[in-house]
Design a protein around this nucleic acid. Structure first.
Lengths: 340, 340
DNA sequence: CCAGAGCTTGTAAGCGCTTACATAAGTAAT
DNA sequence: ATTACTTATGTAAGCGCTTACAAGCTCTGG
């Protein structure tokens, strides 16, 4: 009985074209192993039936999905968008599909998402940052799924990584702030727990401070989830303390934008009354006014390189090389000398 | 021979626990159909082996993926982010997983993505807008994959839809602009080709204009892809024409933000010299200064309702009801009376 | 003490595809 | 014409799971 009501299968195509399923499969996957006349007949059958191969069946049989999974902390803001876009595009040209999941910055969720993506047959994985339960690395080993870390470079990490030094970048930015004469510097950081990028950014700031002999007494850090509102609130808190900072350095642009808006709402002039800096250089940083001084991260390059590397790992052409990219300080209007 | 090197399978678990594969499967899917003692033994085996069920195999056997696919025009900006987030969350509570793809506003890409998601076994689909090749609807019919449209309400659409009237919303906003005394109104629209939301927004603007007896002569429309830069550029073009508009209404907030930045860069005061409006009410609209007057879309509600409906369709509890949601005009600082 | 009901567990048939291997057909050289 | 390849196609064995059905068991009531 021909399969009429449901979606057509390979078998239906084979019958219609008067060939075996193997031939149809070959037409679709290795067309040059089938003679012209047959191929044409098969293709017509495929078209008239509107046949689409069943992905699950194909995966089962071929043990390959040509799918790469990526788990990013958030889709809410644009921090990972540009890099992921580039990652996706490069993957596409390499013949792979991207599956994205987000963890909401929660380690348990990330763990679950990793299992989900692996169960779905991801041939390889892109993870953000190095800081996670070692259990996960064991699991990936056992499942033999290659994984790569992005957005954070670390030479001795458990996984190879394509990224930059969050610490060095923040150090450099802080040096610049200090060079302008700021002494009362505060920071609005993301939650550092389980987030090595946030940790490293804090460390970088401390490095610079210590190098200039500023004690910790002058360093006021608030940790809060990355969100515009939280940035605004933290800024308000900072400015209502006993010793108001002359520069507020933020863990990323999202927090910085919140701080900036709050400053304006409070009637403060930026940078005359207070300087604000961000990190990441997302589109937002140039849209707000004054535009944000921030650390430019080569998102696109990172995404592209990560795609190439993870595919190389999947195809066993590489066992994972790490690449360190350079960041660049974007000096814009939100940073100036401290008020006299 | 036990399966040692590769990932563990149901069979491995069954052997380890000394039961049949059917029992293991039941432990995982319908635990109460297995007696306590056995279940415990099985679960221990599952844990010690670190077993994760193979998704493809499960799909093949059960013919269900508990996956809903969504194809949105873009992930580049936040327009769909919040709604999709809500969609995702609701889906999660209903026991479904979301698979997202983006079409970059290109009909061919959308078509391909639809086929991909269907091939991947999506039990149902969420699409944005009504305007697409009828071929696609036939394909969906044949594949028996229920689909729902969001972000655009249309009673007589080929598919059921959960959304709002882009036309009515834009009409209402324009009425407000006109009521303030504006006569020279220009529009920066997204590309309307193949995008019924963009088309409807233009129509809404025209409706309002015609109702007030303004001829088309006074309506200057530029169509450009949704992007901050494009908004800025279009604004510049508009303001360098012979008859400068006193109000520039934008097809969405992204274009409006670009226009706003350009206005500021040109030394124009908003809204004293020129008014600017957006559409969508994404986070950005409140972040920029002056804050954007825009149309608030109930993204979250839309996402949640869409999730419920698409699942109902998948589970055959509904054949697709359309829901029309209300939008709301958010009056903010970027809109004021025209200069005298 | 046994039939019948109600559980728990096992057996085995696919799901739709890829691919190793077998077979058939064509080609060229002897 | 025969042999020895090469090339095109077919056959059939899974891939790892779910689930209809069968089988075995315990327990009840007559």
């Amino acid at each position: 009985m021909p399969n009429t009501s449901a979606a057509p299968t390979l078998d239906d195509v084979a019958k219609k074209a008067g060939v075996s399923t193997a031939t149809v499969s070959r037409c679709l996957n290795t067309p040059d192993r089938v003679v012209e006349a047959t191929r044409k007949r098969v293709m017509i059958a495929v078209d008239t039936l509107g046949y689409t191969p069943n992905f699950a069946a194909r995966v089962m049989a071929a043990k390959r999905t040509f799918t790469i999974g990526a788990i990013i902390p958030t889709m809410e803001n644009a921090i990972f968008a540009r890099g992921l876009q580039a990652f996706q595009e490069e993957l596409h040209t390499l013949g792979y599909t991207l599956l994205v999941a987000s963890s909401a910055y929660k380690p348990e969720v990330e763990k679950e998402q990793i299992r989900t993506l692996v169960a779905r047959g991801a041939d390889g994985l892109l993870l953000i940052g190095h800081d996670r339960d070692p259990e996960i690395y064991k699991y990936l080993d056992r499942q033999k799924v290659p994984a790569l870390v992005a957005w954070s470079f670390q030479n001795d990490g458990r996984l190879p990584s394509i990224g930059f030094s969050n610490r060095d970048a923040m150090r450099a930015l802080t040096d610049k702030v200090i060079a302008l004469g700021h002494e009362r510097i505060a920071m609005i950081s993301g939650i550092s727990q389980g987030n090595d990028r946030a940790q490293q950014r804090i460390e970088g700031l401390k490095d610079a401070l210590i190098a200039r002999w500023f004690g910790n007494a002058t360093l006021n850090i608030i940790e809060t989830p990355y969100d515009v509102e939280n940035g605004a609130e933290a800024f308000k808190r900072l400015m209502s303390g006993p010793s108001k900072p002359t520069a507020v350095m933020c863990g990323n642009d999202v927090l910085a934008v919140g701080a900036l808006r709050q400053a304006i709402d409070m009637g403060l002039r930026v940078p005359q009354d207070v300087s604000i800096t961000g990190f990441d250089d997302i589109e937002l940083a140039r849209i707000v006014s004054p535009a944000l001084t921030t650390v430019h991260v080569p998102h696109q390059e990172m995404g592209r390189k990560a795609a190439c590397e993870v595919v190389a790992m999947v195809e066993k052409e590489s066992s994972g090389r790490s690449v360190k990219l350079q960041t660049e300080i974007k000096q814009r209007a939100s940073l100036g000398p401290p008020p006299v």
